[in-house]
Design a binder for these strands. Structure first.
Lengths: 147, 147
DNA sequence: CTACAAGCTCAACTTAACTTGAGGTCAAGC
DNA sequence: GCTTGACCTCAAGTTAAGTTGAGCTTGTAG
């Protein structure tokens, strides 16, 4: 079965569990890369599976595609990323995760005390102030995400 | 200073830190309620501040407005909710939160091991499979949230 | 050599959660 | 009594992350 080193979109979709349209989308966003056959069809290297897996994991952790893209693009331009490279990413995100976890904990631990207590007068409540959000500018949907 | 019991949108916006337009929006979604003056302007009871605070907190925890709305609407129809009522909510969400936290932890602990290791071949990777997502149907943006 | 599944592109639609803008009303100060 | 700032409504725009569909091309199995 002369293992084709190259994968078609369909195959990637199948193995990665994401829709073909999503793969197109990721590619348009520069998260993954492909080259074309003479007939203009995409062919992916095997590492795309890893990339896609990372994308999904990162998303579940609440990292936006934009951020993921930046991270992925920080990987070495030409060469196939090494285990080292991946580890850099994972540690960066691990920190992110740690932060998020501790925030959630803070939230959880403050919740019962705070929600029922009438202290929700915003300016004083530890819950509301602990995480002083940066007022992101620009229009449209804001963070939908735990941050 | 005959403390006006009633608040205008502007005042609520100020004190709660959310935009007037957002308050309109929440009201349209049934998350908060107001009555009108003879001149058709909104007036809010003081409890709206609490509600809004809760909305924000819940959002930060990754709960959607829809879910928040459902929860808030489960509060007693007519009367001003008691501390008891709020506590019911907070405990429900606390469980949610606990779940989320443990999920994140699982993710975090799997991350370094998994991302660099080449096991990301999806069908085998513990990370990818641990949280078997329910394939939500319908179109449009999917969960952007840690879940 | 011909079906027919799988690809391709591009535009339009979807959801969530708001914001922005246009066009008009209300209220408090001078 | 008029001006100015806060309100009101309703429609349309925005972002993120994709999906859906139309119309057309490829490639492979019979």
């Amino acid at each position: 079965m002369a293992a084709a080193t190259e994968l078609t979109v369909g195959q990637v979709a199948m193995r990665s569990g994401v829709a073909v349209s999503a793969l197109h989308f990721y590619e348009a966003r520069g998260l993954i890369r492909s080259h074309r056959t003479s007939g203009n069809q995409r062919r992916y290297g095997r590492d795309v599976l890893r990339r896609v897996a990372i994308i999904k994991v990162a998303q579940e952790v609440g990292i936006s595609l934009a951020e993921i893209g930046t991270a992925l693009r920080s990987l070495p331009e030409g060469r196939t990323p090494t285990r080292e490279d991946w580890n850099l990413l994972s540690t960066a995100w691990r920190d992110d995760l740690d932060q998020k976890i501790s925030q959630l904990k803070k939230l959880r631990d403050g919740l019962s005390d705070c929600i029922g207590c009438g202290c929700m007068s915003i300016d004083k409540c530890p819950l509301r102030n602990k995480n002083d959000r940066l007022a992101r500018d620009g229009a449209g949907a804001r963070r939908l995400v735990v941050r």
